[in-house]
């Protein structure tokens, strides 16, 4: 993430309708916002539409932002909400029958060290929609299980289980690829 002072200055300029500030704010946030939306929607076109809508909204309603240094979080919240809104109707959660236990010592061997991030990204996209969404929100977007549960109208324990399930599946898929 960029320097908060730099972002805050851009927001100050944006409040004066400075087009260069818009462009700079877009440049500094676009990739991250697209990644956030893409991890939830799993669709490039949908994610691009969502970030486009969110940026426009943030520029037009900048007067609603109370604090200049909160722009990034505000924009991210917009992107996440819009993405969740889009997938809410089609989201399903896998039945988790077995108890999933992910221990810290499992990763002592650093099995993931040689796996490229492109492969990780690919496998992340291949995860079932429900657990992938929770995994992204919790680990990569910093949401708490309580917040995820409220957003997706599920129980906190279900959110935790889905997260562990996603982590387990991702690990299995990636390890499988290292043996191939």
């Amino acid at each position: 993430m960029n320097d908060p002072h730099y972002i805050a200055n851009l927001v100050k300029m944006l409040r004066k309708n400075d087009v260069m500030a818009m462009r700079s704010l877009y440049e500094t946030h676009a990739k991250q916002m697209l990644a956030t939306s893409l991890r939830i929607t799993n669709n490039q076109n949908d994610a691009e539409d969502i970030i486009q809508e969110a940026f426009i909204q943030s520029f037009q309603k900048i007067s609603q932002l109370k604090s200049d240094d909160k722009y990034s979080a505000w924009l991210k919240r917009m992107v996440t909400n819009k993405s969740l809104q889009l997938i809410k109707n089609r989201i399903t959660f896998s039945e988790i029958s077995e108890a999933i236990d992910v221990h810290q010592e499992e990763d002592i061997d650093h099995w993931y060290k040689d796996i490229t991030f492109d492969k990780i990204k690919e496998e992340l996209q291949n995860l079932p929609i429900g657990c992938r969404t929770i995994f992204s929100l919790y680990l990569l977007e910093g949401y708490k299980h309580k917040e995820i549960a409220a957003e997706l109208e599920i129980s906190i324990s279900n959110s935790k289980s889905q997260y562990r399930y996603a982590l387990k599946l991702l690990r299995e898929k990636l390890q499988q690829r290292t043996y191939e």
Binding site: A30, Q32, A35, E48, H110, Y112, I120, L140, R171
Partner: peptide
């Protein structure tokens, strides 16, 4: 665990190369 930490620390790598 370490894998989670690894993903979190390299979050930028998971972002698209360009928009």
């Amino acid at each position: 665990n370490d894998f989670e930490k690894h993903l979190l620390d390299n979050k930028k790598q998971l972002e698209p190369k360009e928009v």
